[in-house]
Simulated assay, not measured.
Amino acid sequence: MMLEVLQSGPLSLLQDKGRFGYQNQGVTTGGPMDEHAYGWGNWLLGNDLNSTQIEVTLGMASFRFHATTYFALTGADLGASLNGKPLSSWFSYHAVEGDELRFTRPVSGMRAYLSVHGGFRVSPMLGSSSTVCREGIGGLNGDGKRLEAGDNIPFSLSDSRINTKVPNWAIPDYDSPLEIGIILGSQQALFSEDAKKTLFSSFFTISQHSDRMGFRLEGQPIIAERYDVISEGIGFGAVQIPPDGQPIVLMKDRQTIGGYPKVGTLSALGASRLSQSRPGSEIKFTPLSVSHAEAELRLFQEVIYRR
Rank of each mutant, 00 (worst) to 15 (best):
L6G: 12
Q7D: 10
Q7S: 15
Q15W: 00
R19T: 02
F20G: 07
F20N: 04
Y22D: 04
G31L: 06
P32I: 03
M33T: 12
E35Q: 05
A37Q: 03
A37S: 15
Y38Q: 08
W40R: 13
W40G: 01
W43T: 01
G46R: 01
N47K: 11
D48L: 11
S51R: 00
T52F: 06
T52S: 14
T52M: 05
Q53D: 05
V56M: 09
G59R: 04
S62G: 08
S62P: 00
F63S: 08
A67G: 13
F71L: 11
A72Q: 05
G75T: 10
D77C: 00
L78C: 14
S81K: 07
L82R: 06
L82V: 03
G84I: 04
K85M: 08
S88L: 07
F91E: 14
V96G: 13
V96T: 12
G98S: 10
L101Y: 04
V107S: 04
G109L: 02
A112I: 14
S115L: 14
S115V: 01
G118Y: 03
G118A: 14
F120C: 13
S123F: 01
P124L: 11
L126G: 09
S129D: 06
R134P: 00
G136T: 04
I137E: 06
G139Q: 02
N141K: 12
G142E: 09
R146N: 04
A149G: 13
P154Y: 09
S156K: 12
D159N: 13
V166D: 04
D175F: 01
L178E: 04
E179H: 04
Q187I: 03
Q187G: 10
F191E: 02
S192L: 09
E193A: 10
D194T: 11
Q208V: 13
Q208K: 06
H209A: 15
S210R: 07
R212G: 03
M213A: 12
R216A: 15
E218H: 10
I223H: 09
A224C: 11
E225P: 00
R226Y: 07
F236Q: 11
A238T: 07
P243F: 12
D244Y: 14
I248S: 00
K252R: 15
T256R: 02
Y260N: 07
Y260D: 10
Q276C: 07
Q276R: 09
R278S: 14
G280R: 01
L288K: 09
V290T: 03
S291P: 00
H292L: 09
A293S: 15
A295Q: 10
L297Y: 15
R298C: 09
Y305N: 15
R307F: 02
